[in-house]
Nucleic acid binder design. Structure first.
Lengths: 226, 226
DNA sequence: GCGAACGGTCATCGTCCGGTCACATCCGCC
DNA sequence: GGCGGATGTGACCGGACGATGACCGTTCGC
């Protein structure tokens, strides 16, 4: 039976989940804050971490990142309905799944099993690509930078997805027009410039000297985090 | 036959894999630590890197990231069953594939072939040609020397691509004008000289006595690393 | 029906590139 | 050894390319 560490500040939730999991044979340790949780992690050595998003002091994402710095420990995020939790943020921080509270013990346990199964049989994780500080979720059509979700316009999203599909590869304006804009447009290739600029303004720290989308004068554009 | 660098601390595994690959005609170099592996990388210049996940000192992921900083070298991770290895982490670090140890030599070699095939096929990682210390990436339109990217102007890039497409072959100025400058220009053939010079200044150690682009007096130019 | 956001266009500006020139250097040939 | 043609070298400057900001018609959501 998997050993579970639960980090949760709300005593009622904490005790409820703990009790439910214990009844089903799990070994459970709990902590009320991120800091004490990290300490418990070291000595308890759980097989899985249940981590509340909203915590006093360090929040869940911070704890998650900290854990990920030196461990691949499976992590499930707990989020209250109404928390403005973004899946991409959580996954980028390194979480393996998330559960919306309140949830029945059966649900929680099912998720625990699912995550542990996925970890053992690799390949099942959501499709999130990392490019430097950018996290691109193709399935969810979301992009996050440093954990912060970016609002991309549809054409910008298409363009980014196309470029990141083949990093380090150069695409001419014509190629991009054909693939991103498909057959809907046969006008000026300078349109690509405009879209690239708008995209840069959102994903680059310094759009003037871009890090992600590079210009190859006379050829086209290329995506590639340096 | 691909040249393989194997970084693996366990001597029995290291020697076993090395022997198996050598028997099949691969040129193999080995290293026991990440640090020595990186050093071997620079001088051995392998076509592919087999990288153990768990290493004393720098671990495999760290080595992988380090290599990726300045190279697209294909990398296959080796993981022991039970290592809490996450595919996503590995792939994020830049690995191209992973193998769970212990594995038969046939399996390892099959993976090596598969990865190299993917690399060469378009859409995967860029296909890189090596000419001496020069790495030419046609898909990504980048040229690196000793792992360091060079900033080539468009015409210089075109010229280099044309010359490297047929190493050792002599092109007259007229031919180069037609192919590199296409029909956009019908002026002085001395223009080629200027471009060659600019290119030499960037790729040659001693532009005065060039190693890569040789002059055939009265005929033209030829690319061929000595 | 209104407003915002998206996307396509235009004009302007800065910069890098590349074509040219003048001169130095090298090589071959007489 | 001198001469002439071919190539190497450095500098210059005009122009092309891309970046940038602004504008506006359209479309979508509320």
């Amino acid at each position: 039976m998997p050993r579970v560490l639960l980090i949760e500040d709300d005593p009622s939730v904490r005790e409820g989940v703990e009790l439910g999991l214990r009844r089903r044979g799990h070994e459970v340790r709990t902590a009320a804050t991120g800091e004490s949780g990290l300490a418990a992690l070291a000595e308890f050595r759980p097989d899985l971490l249940l981590l509340d998003l909203m915590l006093p002091g360090m929040n869940g994402v911070q704890v998650c990142r900290r854990v990920r710095e030196d461990s691949q420990l499976p992590i499930i995020m707990l989020t209250a309905r109404g928390d403005d939790f973004d899946v991409v943020i959580g996954l980028e921080a390194g979480a393996d799944d998330y559960i919306v509270k309140p949830a029945r013990t059966e649900v929680i346990e099912a998720r625990i099993r699912a995550v542990l199964r996925r970890i053992e049989a690799p390949g099942g994780r959501p499709s999130v690509e990392f490019h430097g500080e950018l996290a691109v979720d193709r399935a969810g059509l979301t992009v996050a930078k440093n954990g912060e979700r970016l609002a991309l316009a549809p054409s910008e999203m298409k363009l980014l997805l196309h470029l990141t599909a083949a990093p380090e590869q150069v695409f001419s304006r014509q190629q991009l027009l054909e693939h991103v804009w498909e057959h809907s447009y046969h006008g000026d290739a300078r349109l690509v410039d405009a879209c690239v600029r708008r995209l840069r303004n959102k994903i680059e720290d310094t759009p003037g000297s871009p890090r992600y989308i590079q210009t190859l004068r006379g050829f086209g554009y290329r995506f590639g985090p340096l």
